[in-house]
């Protein structure tokens, strides 16, 4: 068997997890191969080192921080509950839309152009209103002219008056 196959079996060999046949194969290979013997010895050293890693004590400060976690979480939950109240949802949705629109404007690199376009639209609208106002005024004038003509017509062609005559 080649060294690379034996290498895969060294850990289970140390943990006594191989079949009798596999154990004999590995043992026979180890007798003949110094490189695999060295690897086995390194694996034993790694295993001994890892097993001997001590359990580290935690600091008093961390202990206090951990004791405070449930309170921290409770405060956080209260805030969250308040925010997710169903009655607030339409307001939050409207605020989201508003913030999106405002952010589109605020972070737009062509903000100057947007300002100009808005100003132009505003002026156009204002001019239209002015024109409408002038038209309305001229219509009022023309109506008052029509009113006088109508009164005159009524006066001259009054059927009651004619009957008397």
């Amino acid at each position: 068997m080649k060294c690379e196959h034996i290498e895969e079996l060294l850990s289970p060999y140390l943990e006594n997890e191989l079949s009798q046949e596999q154990k004999q194969t590995v043992a026979a290979h180890l007798k003949a191969c110094s490189s695999c013997r060295e690897l086995l010895s390194l694996l034993q050293e790694v295993s001994a080192s890892l097993t001997a890693f001590p359990e580290v004590e935690i600091s008093g400060e961390l202990q206090n921080r951990l004791q405070a976690v449930p309170d921290k979480k409770k405060r956080f939950r209260l805030n969250l509950d308040f925010l997710i109240r169903p009655s607030l949802q339409p307001i939050l949705a409207a605020a989201t839309v508003l913030l999106t629109v405002v952010s589109f404007y605020a972070f737009n690199p062509n903000r100057g152009d947007i300002n100009k376009a808005v100003e132009r639209q505003f002026h156009t609208g204002y001019q239209k209103i002015e024109k409408l106002y002038v038209r309305a005024e001229s219509f009022t004038n023309s109506l008052s002219g029509q009113k006088e003509i109508l009164i005159d017509t009524i006066k001259t062609k009054n059927p009651l008056k004619r009957e008397k005559e």
């Binding site: 850990s11 060295e38 690897l39 390194l42 694996l43 790694v46």
Partner: peptide, 10 residues
């Protein structure tokens, strides 16, 4: 993992 650590050690 053990084999990698053994090689690092070597």
């Amino acid at each position: 993992g053990r084999l990698q650590l053994a090689r690092v050690l070597k």
